[in-house]
Amino acid sequence: MSSRAAWPRISIGRFFVFAFLAFAVCFYGIPLLWLFIAGTRSEGSLFSDPPFTIGTWDVFVRTWTNLTTYNNFQIGTWAINSLIYSVGGVALSLIASIPAGYVLALSEFPGRKLILVVTLIAMITPSTAVVLPIFLEMNLLGLNNTYAGLVLATGFFPFGVYLAYIYFSSALPKGVMDSARVDGCNRFQLFTRIALPLARPIVALVAFFSFLANWSNYFLAFVLLSDDKLYNLPVGLTALVSGSGALSNLPANDVPIKKPEVILAAVLVVLPVFLVFIVAQRFVRSGMLSGAEKG
């Protein structure tokens, strides 16, 4: 009797809800957990020990050294490249999409509906579908294999335009804009002094999604970049794997990149996204909610 009282009573329905949630957490969380733990283990341990064995500090340091000394700290170059592409892409997409969404939401002009429809179509078109035309375009402009080429291509972010459009058309108080007009704001000042400061949550949200897309951008980068000095992390990771034969069961070679090194490289790819999310989530969450609440 007393032991039963200690447990909160839950209905069968709730039990299944919790059971399903617990399953989902395990199903999606375990691979990530494994990834972070596996970076500390030796190749031998990966094969023979139980999956969640934690390796040693020495092994981790050796793996880290192998990875970072390979080809003159090539992974570092790729990480910096990734940062350049991502920050550049985020900046360009913000500069383009926030004002575009604002104008689409607040102005009436011929062709506005058409632009919205085209934006929507561009948004749902898989980005891989336009990789070839982008490649041809960049080739024509001589921007293949350059930082500017990939940044320019990733600055095209219709999803951001649409997010900003939704935000400005639903969450921007009309009275405040009218009041600013009476106070003497011209069209440009209306945007810079009133709309933009109020749109901080949506700027954070668009920046976050854009960063996410750019950081993990593989296919476009793979097609546009042929010089391995210009690779970003996802392309670099593939090059690392295929160049070293780490994941194929080839006969032993001299390249120090084995499975632990590749796993650690994968952690390097994933980690910044985690960090950015933790920093941005407060803004992102308020951005998602702000359309729903008044004032």
Partner: peptide, 11 residues
């Protein structure tokens, strides 16, 4: 002008 919604700049 003074508006019904006050229309103050929230930021």
């Amino acid at each position: 002008m003074v508006f019904q919604s006050y229309a103050l700049y929230p930021h």
